[in-house]
Design a protein around this nucleic acid. Structure first.
Lengths: 218, 218
DNA sequence: AAGATAGTGTAGTCTACACTACACATCGAA
DNA sequence: TTCGATGTGTAGTGTAGACTACACTATCTT
């Protein structure tokens, strides 16, 4: 009766966990290298070692494996933005710090790969979209909105729809850069290019186009 | 010697043009419905009518057909943003008009579909990315940058990197909305929701967070 | 009318790959 | 030591689908 656990049962033994992780690691590498549709389950087993049967026992099918992989990564990537002591900083410094950290993460090849794969597969795997958004971009937006909310409470900022405002700031920050990197039209920006962009975005966000008399091109 | 034109020769006869267009139309419908990888060339011929051989004569292979389709659509979609008399408007009005037109186009299901497919396939078809970007989003950015440039010339705006500024405005406008729609996490925004968002974005862009004393949530 | 040019229709080749079957190995707990 | 759960390995099966071959037709030009 053993080979008929149809679904994703959490691994009980230590060895089970190891095999599961090895499969997820291999899947991640391959999916990001070549794309979901271009990777076969045999490729994955080939890289992970072990057996095809094990893959199917753990994840049920190829989609299950893919979703498990995406969930793990988006949590990991976006879960590590520091939030410590942000309320003690000026808003300039806080946005600057968040902005740099975020841009560095988002411009990373792995993060871009995850984004591409999710966009590509989401029309056929609808849970995937939620999984990714809530674990990733949506979380960042909420964290920033919370920060704005606290500032509103302390009368440091006019009341507004803080979630929308957070979205606007983040959108401005990524701007066309994100698309350009997703499409691989330019090579990755340097650390200082990122810092410069964030500085100008923060300035624009806080004071608007007309707020500051001159802003030279980089 | 007829069946050995390996590449995409422009159609000479009227009938040739019709058949070519019919193939492109069918390809577009199917690719956007199901995604590139999920559509077979036979499906396309099935919908377009005509013959598989004709498809290969015109486009060489499946990728060629896809690229021709993307190029045609991105030009069409983004090519129709009105630019007339924009220099006679206030900057508020100009940005408002552009913003609404753009958001309506970008939130459209067809446009989102094109975006998804390009992102999905670009790692394997690198010309595709350029084709799409230059014909689409890049064009809009340049048009807006030109507008800013003219304002700088007329001393209505401080000098700056106008291309970057345009990118920032457009990014702010799309913000997280675009991703949410790409992933189909929410239903399409109404016309008035779009108008409201554009209004707040223009205001934020021009005056910054602190520029205006109060901005109520929508 | 004859030959080039483009379109049609069918049938077929070849390969890739998701998923299954089945027999056997390992190992920890009772 | 044996039982149950889990992992391994191999060898399928079935299907889908990109691309080609080929014999034929329609149209246009000179």
């Amino acid at each position: 009766m053993s080979p008929s656990l149809p679904k994703d049962s959490p691994p009980t033994t230590e060895r089970g966990r190891q095999r599961r992780d090895a499969l997820l690691d291999a899947a991640q590498q391959l999916f990001l290298e070549r794309g979901y549709g271009q990777v076969s389950v045999n490729d994955i087993v080939g890289r992970a070692g072990g057996s095809l049967s094990t893959l199917y026992r753990h994840f049920g099918n190829k989609e299950g494996l893919f979703q498990a992989m995406i969930e793990r990564r988006s949590h990991h990537i976006y879960g590590t933005l520091t939030d410590e002591g942000v309320d003690e900083l000026t808003i300039e410094a806080a946005l600057q710090r968040l902005g740099i950290e975020l841009l560095v993460k988002v411009m990373d090849e792995e993060t871009l790969g995850i984004y591409r794969e999710v966009v590509a597969e989401s029309p056929r795997q609808s849970q995937l979209a939620r999984l990714f958004f809530d674990g990733g971009p949506g979380r960042v937006r909420l964290a920033l909105a919370d920060y704005f909310e606290r500032r509103v409470q302390r009368q440091l900022m006019p009341a507004c729809d803080t979630v929308e405002l957070a979205g606007a700031f983040l959108g401005m920050l990524l701007g066309e850069w994100h698309l350009i990197r997703v499409l691989q039209l330019e090579s990755p920006p340097s650390r200082t290019a990122i810092e410069n962009r964030v500085t100008r975005c923060v300035d624009l966000f806080l004071h608007g186009v007309q707020g500051r008399p001159s802003r030279r091109s980089q």
